[in-house]
Design a protein around this nucleic acid. Structure first.
Length: 289
DNA sequence: GTAGGGTTATTT
DNA sequence: AAATAACCCTAC
């Protein structure tokens, strides 16, 4: 993992993936020139887009089983078999064979929503390390608890980062994540409601354009944040905020649900980005030349 | 202009 | 020291 020079931001990466999903891989110049992505990818050249897409695809391809793919030079009679041909091809033509929601080990939920945020919280609580836990350990705990898919590895990074930025979790050192505060002996739900600097209301167009019906979660999140802040204020007074705390738990649950919605939307969007044709895209038919 | 390979730099 | 990600160069 590395952030060597000018690491790509989430916005840039998102724009790239959207551009690939929109125009298709290979049209880097078109994507770069697109007025929608130009402000984001202004400092990126078409070659940069290609390289980034390549790295992204490479990382996504080698998930789960990491074999020595380094130096695939044919030095002997063992020539590259046909099995690797698919991995070397375009990242767009990728068969995502991951659809078995029936064999989930969580019959509690009807559909077992992929609330990775809650999973992270659970893993963090499970570890409960004062020094903090590294992303690998967190992922390991989550993987042990319930099986995850290819998308998890990709989402965990962004999720962790977002949670850290949202002050929901605390980031120590350069790689350790821990829960913000567990001062109270009994704190089932981490009520940490800091001012959400993350913008949401002023940018509904972006979400509405790609997620469409999923954009409904924006006002819910806002309300949740507002209520959480209110509860936090009440808690700060150290008065009879028990009632408010229960309300806070309810709000937190709602926020988690919203988050899961966003996550599932992101997953669907991810599939679209990979070139998979999804039927839930109403305006997915873009102009062909 | 794109695809691919190789190199550098940073992180673990 | 290894892996990963950005960057640079070359070929088609």
């Amino acid at each position: 993992m590395g952030a060597p020079k000018q690491k790509w931001t989430q916005e840039e990466e998102d724009a790239l993936r959207r551009g690939v999903q929109k125009h298709g891989a290979g049209k880097w110049r078109t994507i770069q020139k697109d007025p929608e992505f130009s402000p984001v990818l202004s400092s990126r050249s078409n070659i940069d887009l290609k390289d980034k897409w390549r790295n992204l695809s490479f990382s996504a391809s080698g998930l789960g089983s990491r074999d020595k793919m380094r130096v695939p030079k044919i030095t002997g009679p063992s020539s590259t078999p046909a099995s690797t041909s698919q991995a070397l091809h375009l990242p767009v033509a990728k068969k995502v064979a991951e659809a078995s929601p029936d064999t989930e080990k969580k019959p509690q939920d009807v559909k077992t929503p992929p609330k990775y945020g809650a999973m992270i919280m659970e893993a963090l609580s499970e570890l409960n390390e004062p020094n903090g836990s590294e992303i690998n350990a967190i992922a390991g705990v989550i993987e042990q608890k319930h099986e995850v898919h290819s998308t998890f590895r990709r989402v965990i990074g962004s999720k962790l980062r977002r949670l850290a930025e949202s002050k929901k979790i605390e980031k120590v050192d350069n790689k350790l994540y821990r829960l913000p505060v567990s001062s109270a002996t009994r704190t089932p739900a981490p009520i940490i409601a800091s001012a959400p600097k993350q913008k949401d209301p002023p940018k509904p167009s972006k979400v509405a354009k790609n997620l469409g019906p999923f954009a409904t979660s924006s006002p819910a999140l806002e309300a949740a944040m507002a209520a959480a802040a209110k509860v936090a204020d009440a808690e700060a007074k150290a008065h009879d905020a028990h009632d408010q705390m229960m309300e806070a738990e309810r709000i937190l649950k709602m926020a988690e649900k919203t988050e899961s919605l966003l996550t599932v939307a992101a997953e669907i969007y991810d599939r679209c980005s990979r070139g998979e044709v999804t039927t839930l895209n109403p305006e997915g038919v873009q102009k062909s030349t």
